[in-house]
Amino acid sequence: MAENKMLAQMSEKSGFIAALDQSGGSTPGALRAYGIPASAYNGDAEMFKLVHEMRVRIMTAPAFTGDKVIGTILFEKTMDGEAEGKPVPTFLWERGIVPFVKVDKGLEAEKDGVQLMKPISDLDTLLARAAKLGVFGTKMRSVINLASQDGIAAIVAQQFEVAAQIGRHGLIPIIEPEVSIKSPDKAGAEAILKAELAKHLDALPHDRNVMLKLTIPDVTDTYAPFAGHDRVVRVVALSGGYKRDDACRRLAKNHGMIASFSRALVDDLKYSMSDAEFNAALGHAIAEIYQASTVKH
């Protein structure tokens, strides 16, 4: 079954996960970075059409295959769209890439030094649709700004509560409690997060697995023990605002952790590039991130 092959790939294969999941609020910024200003489109429909075209250009590039890119996180509208006349999840899996979908609906206002996820309306409907389209898993993000015991405990509890709902649909949730790289005590927040994650992972039933998407830690190998945890399929890293060379340098020091980069993957890509220039720039980024994910110092 495809699910078993996808699980084996996500557990064992060398490579990294591409994050192509900028959603409503961050889409204008993603297009602007790509070289398309807000004045170039009118309304959400045109905006999402342009960002879908950008993502299809990435997904259909010669270097974007399962050789190095073992998974891709999609925005919901991208999951529902097509690439080369096929549903995007089908297209990706035919290229050897495991599809995921972002399910969170953004962040609450900060409380206790953290930003919880907003309620996810119609989550069961989205999960059922994702499963039908051949999607393997999900991703959901919340943010930790301060080394707050109560706040971080609340974030992790919420992540695992929603993860249980996702697991009931047969999907593997990527739990993403991002520690802001601007946190005044990032290492302290990461120590609290590690303890809270361990508590919840140890309490998971034997038939429920998760993935972890975490900010590259200040203390090297903070999260290395999770790579061997029975309930953890993979530990992946977000770039979190670090530039690609810095993110890759930090990632290469952390064992058992592969990349799941967004901005650090696409930063050099521009709308005005010829296909040859675009494919070369993307190929270089993929090679650099793959190296940091697979060759550890």
Rank of each mutant, 00 (worst) to 15 (best):
N4Y: 11
L7W: 11
L7T: 14
M10L: 13
M10C: 07
M10T: 07
S11A: 14
E12F: 12
S14G: 12
G15W: 09
T27M: 11
P28C: 04
P28W: 13
I36D: 07
P37I: 14
S39T: 15
A40I: 07
N42V: 04
N42C: 00
A45S: 03
F48N: 08
K49M: 11
K49P: 00
L50G: 03
L50C: 03
R55W: 06
I58P: 07
A61E: 03
A61W: 12
V69A: 07
I70L: 10
G71N: 01
M79C: 00
D80T: 02
A83C: 03
P87F: 06
P87C: 02
P87A: 11
V88Y: 04
L92G: 11
I97W: 01
P99Y: 11
P99K: 07
V101Y: 10
V103C: 06
D104Q: 06
K105C: 04
K105S: 09
L107K: 13
E108I: 04
A109K: 14
G113F: 05
G113S: 09
V114P: 04
V114C: 08
Q115D: 00
Q115A: 08
Q115G: 00
Q115S: 14
M117S: 09
K118I: 02
S121T: 13
D122T: 03
D124S: 13
R129K: 15
A130Y: 01
K132L: 03
K132N: 10
K132R: 14
K132C: 01
L133S: 14
M140R: 02
M140P: 00
S142Y: 10
S142F: 11
I144V: 15
D150E: 14
I152D: 04
A153C: 01
A153W: 06
A154Q: 12
A154S: 15
A154T: 08
Q159S: 10
Q159R: 06
A164K: 15
A164L: 06
Q165F: 00
G167E: 06
G167L: 01
I172D: 00
P173T: 04
P173L: 08
E176S: 02
P177F: 09
V179S: 11
S180W: 07
P184C: 04
P184S: 05
D185Q: 01
A189R: 13
E190M: 04
A191D: 11
A191R: 12
L193T: 08
K194M: 07
K194H: 14
A198E: 15
K199G: 02
H200A: 10
H206G: 09
R208E: 10
V210S: 05
L212D: 03
T215A: 14
D218E: 15
D221H: 09
D221K: 05
T222K: 03
G228Y: 11
H229G: 13
H229S: 13
V232E: 10
V236D: 09
L238Y: 05
S239F: 09
S239P: 04
G241S: 04
Y242M: 10
Y242C: 02
K243I: 12
C248S: 13
R249W: 10
L251W: 11
A252C: 05
H255W: 11
G256E: 12
I258N: 11
I258M: 12
S260A: 15
D267E: 15
D268C: 02
L269E: 05
Y271W: 15
S272E: 14
M273C: 03
S274N: 07
D275I: 02
A285K: 00
I289W: 08
I289L: 06
Q291E: 15
Q291L: 07
T294D: 01
H297E: 13
H297S: 12
